[in-house]
């Protein structure tokens, strides 16, 4: 239609009109293109809405109700009060932090030392990488199953070895006073491969020129490690610290296999995750479990924030 009008005009006007015409089509093409881009995002954002946003909002709402999934009554803040005054809950917080603390502060230094050793040898680097990472690819559920026997107080191989070399043995999972150490040992065994792989990748990214320069200045191997390697790894340590804590605070799988939903013996290895599972899916107290998840969520956020601050200071 536009074209028909244009044909009556002189050449100059025809051109400008044609440009306008082009602009219009470009604009609509852009709009169409934008729409196509949203199509690319559609599956992921349906997922975000349905499986992230909705559950987070809904569990916030649920935390103000008494609910078993079918009957709901509004109870205000009483769920939060109930959880925050529950000795059982604070015991799970203590257990979670205790296990997490020792897992992280044993595994990161140990893993870093082994990564440095692997990085410094000439032959067999790949062999050791494969061996040390193997525990991490096995599922933690199967690993917990094996460790029940490995750490068995009477017939386990660890106590036998400790006894053979004259060290004191432990009651491990059979006594509340030692069971957490069993979980820590399992956690260190399972996580160390991951720490080593991450450390190795970052060790190899440190520029060799720095070492060359240090060598010319007469720095020994240990000095190079202390003053070049470790400062260059602070970002990696921060990453491991943060992901380590996030993972630790959500610990559930292995303690469920070792001690069931109530973390036997005597709730000594019940974690926050296990508390939520126990209240939510063995007791069907959805309101209380939701309040507990929010408290846990807030603990994780605050703690991650603190970790970020602390590790920034080191950088």
């Amino acid at each position: 239609m536009v074209k028909g009008k244009v044909s009556l005009n002189e050449n100059g006007i025809e051109d400008t009109l044609n440009i306008n015409d082009d602009l219009e089509t470009i604009k609509s093409k852009r709009r169409k293109a934008a729409l196509t881009w949203y199509m690319f995002l559609l599956p992921s954002f349906i997922g975000i809405l349905l499986f992230m946003v909705y559950p987070i909002v809904e569990s916030f709402r649920l935390s103000f109700f008494r609910s078993n999934g079918t009957i709901e009554t509004f109870t205000g803040l009483s769920n939060f009060q109930m959880v925050l005054t529950s000795k059982t809950f604070w015991n799970t917080v203590w257990n979670t932090f205790f296990i997490g603390f020792f897992q992280i502060f044993l595994t990161i230094p140990l893993g870093f030392i082994f990564a440095s050793l692997i990085n410094s040898i000439k032959h067999g680097q790949n062999f050791f990488k494969v061996v040390y990472f193997l525990p991490n690819v096995t599922s933690i559920v199967a690993a917990a199953m094996i460790f029940q026997f490995v750490l068995h107080p009477e017939m386990g191989v660890v106590n036998y070895a400790l006894d053979a070399i004259g060290l004191p043995t432990s009651t491990w999972f059979s006594d509340p006073s030692t069971s957490k150490w069993g979980v820590i040992l399992l956690a260190v065994w399972h996580w160390i491969g991951f720490v080593i792989i991450i450390c190795l990748a970052n060790l190899q990214a440190i520029s060799p020129e720095m070492y060359e320069a240090a060598k010319i200045d007469g720095a020994s191997g240990l000095q190079q490690w202390l003053f070049i390697t470790i400062p260059n790894m602070s970002g990696t340590f921060a990453f491991l610290l943060i992901t380590g804590w996030i993972g630790s605070l959500q610990r559930f799988n292995e303690v469920y296999v070792l001690g069931g939903p109530n973390g036997s013996p005597a709730r000594s290895i019940q974690t926050m995750g296990a508390f939520i599972y126990e209240r939510g899916f063995t007791g069907f107290e959805f309101g209380i479990a939701s309040a507990a998840t929010y408290i846990m969520f807030i603990i994780i956020l605050i703690f991650t924030f603190i970790n970020l601050k602390v590790s920034k200071m080191q950088l």
């Binding site: 934008a34 649920l62 995750g273 599972y277 994780i300």
Partner: peptide, 27 residues
Amino acid sequence: GTFKYKRLLFVLVLCTLMIPMEPRLIP
């Protein structure tokens, strides 16, 4: 891609990294 709210939507995606499974379990 070039589209509106690209940055905002990407930040939203990164936010999902922060959300653990537990609070989503019951809903």
